[in-house]
């Protein structure tokens, strides 16, 4: 046998043996407790129901909604394009790829935000980046988007804008901008003709010059 070949074989075995001598650095993927504490105290993980709704309507491809409720509840009602990963199977290997998708915001939601926040903590501790929680969960989403109360006459412009956005969102999700109709389904006796509000744009002023 070639002597060079034997020498190289001995070298590679020695290098591999060297691995046994060097101390084993903790191979845990988990993040350190102090980093986790910082992340828990940071409220930036909470996304509002309005922000989520806007992204759903806009068809944001970077949004990945994850429903952590049990499958039965998910099948009854879920947000559009959401994936069901019940909290107890969040660490299942079949979801690893989905949770590690780069460039996606993985937003957890449940009925409130206790289960979704638990899912967030497990994932954050496991070193999964880009995970968020829908603040208030589906209950809050229903109360604001579907059942949102009309602001008073003295409400600020921001509140009025928000209300008008929620009204359009309601129309998107239920097919009707009217709250009563949205809640009572297709019951004809309760249906009222939808008010059509016409927004008039101020006449455009001609610009001074231009090309």
């Amino acid at each position: 046998m070639d002597r060079r070949y034997t020498l190289l074989a001995i070298l590679v075995v020695l290098l591999a043996a060297g691995l046994l001598i060097i101390p084993n650095k903790g191979e845990k993927k988990e993040i350190k407790p102090d980093k986790l504490l910082l992340a828990i105290n940071d409220q930036a993980r909470f996304l509002s129901t309005d922000a989520i709704t806007e992204r759903i309507i806009g068809g944001d491809p970077t949004l990945q909604l994850i429903d952590v409720r049990p499958a039965k509840q998910f099948n009854t009602y879920a947000l559009p394009n959401a994936v069901n990963i019940p909290l107890d199977s969040i660490l299942s290997p079949s979801w690893t790829e989905l949770l590690h998708q780069p460039g996606k915001d993985k937003v957890f939601y449940s009925n409130g935000d206790i289960e979704s926040d638990a899912a967030w903590q497990v994932c954050t501790r496991n070193g999964i980046p880009g995970v968020f929680v829908m603040k208030g969960g589906l209950n809050h989403w229903y109360n604001t988007i579907i059942k949102g109360a009309e602001p008073s006459n003295t409400a600020s412009g921001t509140d009025l804008d928000l209300y008008s956005f929620r009204q359009s969102a309601r129309q998107y999700f239920t097919g009707s901008g009217d709250q009563e109709t949205a809640q009572s389904g297709n019951d004809a006796s309760t249906q009222k003709p939808a008010k059509v509000s016409v927004e008039r744009k101020p006449a455009e002023k001609s610009s001074g010059g231009g090309c």
Binding site: V13, L15, A16, L20, E27, S94
Partner: peptide
């Protein structure tokens, strides 16, 4: 049969270094 990103060393319950040494030998 998706087992996720599984390593042989983890499945055998040994450290990566020991597995690397055994495989080299």
């Amino acid at each position: 049969g998706n087992l996720g990103g599984k390593l042989v060393s983890d499945s055998l319950g040994m450290s990566k270094s020991l597995f690397a040494f055994l495989l080299t030998v």
